[in-house]
Simulated assay, not measured.
Amino acid sequence: MTCSRRSFLTGTSALIFTTGVAGTAVITSRNSFAEQAKSPQRLGMVHDETACIGCTACTDACRETNKVPEGVSRLEIHRSEPQGEYPNVEYRFTRQSCQHCENPPCVYVCPTGAAYKDEATGIVDVHKEKCVGCGYCLAACPYQVRFFHPENHAADKCNFCRDTNLAKGKQPACVESCPTKALVFGDLNDPNSEVNQVISNKVVYRDKVHLGTKPKLYKVPHQKGEV
């Protein structure tokens, strides 16, 4: 059997190419696994107004867990006017807090980068050390949920207990404290998460979606026809 110089080089090139392709496939496979492991979350919440009884256990837990001073609040539960006639009177309770928008106006107007959206979790938060107290983010927020912390004088708001409960692998304080399970929290990017199950199986709405903010706080309406 004869082997010319040309056939030898051709065979060698084919071997190198095949090995290279195989190596690339392995590397690509490893990279895809790494990308899956590091896939970002979109943390969101559902407030079930049909289950909320207005006890404000959530607001108390938020204040205690996150050391929120008196006079300001990261979370409020608003009660509606009486609905119905005595003795069949009902109230509607709705949550007011940061919506953790996909398109957060507060982030876009901040001149120092203090307001930001964490790309790993989707949480909208504040670098307190960068905040200069200009108030642009307070004015830009269409939900009016930001305030100046009276002690550090930086913009503040709900951050899903990112520095407290979430850092410990727990649920936000409001979720843990709710006696009627009116709050559900989880990853909106996970189709099997509890929060997605609620959104898929119940009628939900979001506040001021016409503004294009894409809020991640969903609500189960107290009455049909409100959506």
Rank of each mutant, 00 (worst) to 15 (best):
R63L: 02
S80L: 01
F147G: 01
P172Q: 08
N159Q: 13
A120D: 11
E176L: 14
R92A: 13
T65G: 02
T65Q: 12
C62Y: 10
T19G: 13
Y218M: 01
C174A: 13
L9P: 00
D156S: 11
E194Y: 03
F17L: 15
V227P: 09
I53Q: 05
N189A: 10
R162A: 14
S39A: 15
V145K: 07
Q223M: 08
C141Q: 09
S13N: 07
V132P: 00
F147T: 11
F93S: 03
L183E: 01
G71N: 02
V132E: 14
N201C: 00
R42G: 00
Y91P: 03
R5Y: 13
Y108W: 08
C110P: 10
Y116M: 00
L15Q: 09
P179T: 11
C178Q: 00
T180L: 06
R206S: 09
F93M: 04
G23R: 07
T121I: 08
A25P: 03
A167I: 08
R30H: 13
K117G: 03
M1G: 14
K181G: 05
K128Y: 05
N66S: 10
T65I: 06
G84D: 05
V109K: 02
I53F: 04
H100A: 08
P221Q: 04
H153N: 12
Q171A: 13
R6A: 14
H78E: 14
G20E: 08
Y218C: 04
E176A: 15
M1H: 12
L211D: 06
G122P: 03
L9K: 08
K157P: 06
I77D: 04
V26G: 09
A115I: 00
K219E: 11
Y91H: 15
N192A: 15
T59R: 05
P105E: 07
C178E: 01
C106I: 11
L166E: 14
V124M: 01
K170R: 15
S4N: 07
N159G: 00
L188R: 11
C106G: 07
I199S: 07
S39P: 11
Y116H: 12
P87R: 05
V126D: 00
T2M: 12
Q144T: 10
P150G: 11
L183Y: 09
R79Y: 08
A140S: 15
T10M: 12
A140L: 02
T121N: 06
T2V: 12
Y143P: 04
S4W: 12
I77W: 09
L188N: 03
K157T: 08
A57P: 03
R74H: 15
D60H: 11
A37Y: 06
C134I: 06
V46P: 01
P87A: 12
K208Q: 14
A22Y: 13
E70M: 13
H210G: 02
T18A: 15
V132I: 15
S80M: 01
V203C: 10
V145P: 09
V184W: 10
I16Y: 07
V220F: 06
T56Q: 13
D118M: 01
I53M: 12
S39I: 10
T12R: 13
G20M: 07
V175P: 05
E102Q: 13
Y86P: 04
C141E: 06
E64P: 02
R162S: 14
L138Y: 07
Y108S: 15
V124L: 09
K208N: 06
L15G: 13
P104V: 10
A139G: 05
V46T: 05
A155H: 00
K117Y: 03
L138V: 09
